[in-house]
Every structure is written in structure tokens, then in C-alpha cells.
Simulated assay, not measured.
Amino acid sequence: MRNVYPGGISCIVSKGDWLFKLGVGAAYDRVGTRDSIMIRVPDHTVTCHLCDMTGPLAITSANPSGEPDSTHHSMVINRLGHKIQGVLCDGDSNEVVASTVVNCLRIDEGIISIVREGCVPAVKVQQIFDRLKNTML
């Protein structure tokens, strides 16, 4: 993660007690799935500043389940404006494609898989992983 964040990669990792150190508390059972959580550190100045002030944010995707990804604040407002109180916006994003989702649940076995190819090409993710894996041998 240190090699890809901040940026357009979301990593699915195992849940564990480490989440309590981040302040998840009673929300532990409400974030992610029973066994995993997806982590993203966006390359977005305002969001990073907000997280510096608040700590990690447990949030859902900015689109209704099953619908196409929201890649612009106007899409979020159009789809979810009636359900949310606001949208954090600092101008147009340079990411017009959703994040690349990488399943890291078997990373200790030397295995990752691409769940969704997004703004970071799958081949680049695999190259980063292979380079790091080779330095650990």
C-alpha cells in the first residue's frame, strides 16, 4: 500500500483488530463485509486534508449498488442528492474512471487478483506487486 497510495487503487484486505486502532469502534460490524474491508487513499488534496483532521473515514461508494461508478460530483448529486447532506468537491477530478480494485486477501501467499480494472491499468498493478514481491524474496 505504501507503494500505491495515494492514488487510484482500492485494496481489499482482511479485517482485524487493527481497525480498532483507527477508531472504528462499534462500527466494526457495519464496515466492509464480515471478513474484509476495502481501503482507498485518494490523491485528492481536500480529501487527504479532511482525513488528516478526522482520521480515516468509513464510507460507501458514491453510487447506488449495481449502478455505474460515479466519477464526477454532478453524478453523485444526481443519483444520491436526495439521500445525502453534501458533497465534498474541489473542482473536477483528474480521475474520470473509477479506482482499480485489487483483492489482497491472499497477499501473504504471494497472490493478488484484479476485481475491477479502473484508472490504474491491471498490468501496472501486477508490475508493482511483482517488483515488491521480488524484493521480499
Rank of each mutant, 00 (worst) to 15 (best):
M1S: 12
R2L: 06
N3M: 02
N3S: 06
N3L: 02
Y5T: 13
P6D: 08
G7M: 03
G7R: 00
G7Q: 00
G8N: 06
I9H: 05
C11T: 05
V13E: 09
K15S: 06
K15F: 08
K15T: 10
D17S: 13
D17C: 06
W18H: 03
L19S: 02
K21D: 14
K21L: 07
G23Y: 04
G23W: 07
V24Y: 01
G25L: 03
G25R: 06
A27M: 08
Y28G: 09
Y28I: 11
D29R: 09
R30G: 09
G32S: 05
R34I: 11
S36D: 12
I37T: 06
I37F: 01
R40A: 06
R40P: 00
V41Y: 00
P42N: 05
P42F: 01
P42T: 01
D43W: 02
H44S: 01
H44P: 05
V46W: 02
V46Q: 02
T47H: 03
T47G: 02
C48Q: 15
C48N: 15
C48F: 09
C51M: 14
D52L: 03
G55H: 04
L57T: 00
L57S: 01
I59A: 06
I59R: 00
T60E: 07
T60L: 04
T60D: 10
S61I: 11
S61N: 10
A62D: 05
P64I: 14
P64C: 09
P64E: 12
S65V: 13
S65R: 09
S65P: 02
S65M: 07
G66W: 03
E67S: 11
P68E: 04
D69W: 11
D69F: 14
S70A: 15
S70H: 11
T71W: 10
T71Q: 10
T71D: 09
H72T: 09
H72W: 12
H72S: 14
V76I: 09
R79N: 12
L80M: 15
G81M: 08
H82W: 11
K83S: 13
Q85D: 14
Q85F: 08
G86S: 10
G86L: 01
C89G: 07
D90G: 10
G91R: 04
G91P: 12
D92I: 13
S93T: 13
E95H: 06
V96T: 15
V96I: 12
V96K: 15
V97R: 13
V97D: 07
A98N: 08
A98G: 11
S99D: 03
V102F: 01
V102D: 00
N103T: 13
N103Q: 06
N103I: 11
C104P: 03
L105W: 08
L105E: 12
R106C: 11
I107F: 08
I111A: 09
S113T: 12
I114F: 00
I114A: 00
R116M: 07
E117M: 02
G118E: 00
G118A: 05
G118S: 05
G118V: 07
C119T: 04
V120E: 00
K124I: 12
K124F: 08
V125L: 10
V125S: 09
V125M: 08
V125R: 08
Q127W: 06
Q127T: 11
Q127E: 14
I128P: 00
F129S: 01
D130V: 00
R131E: 13
L132E: 14
L132K: 07
K133W: 01
K133H: 09
K133L: 03
K133I: 01
K133A: 04
T135M: 14
M136S: 14
M136A: 15
L137E: 14
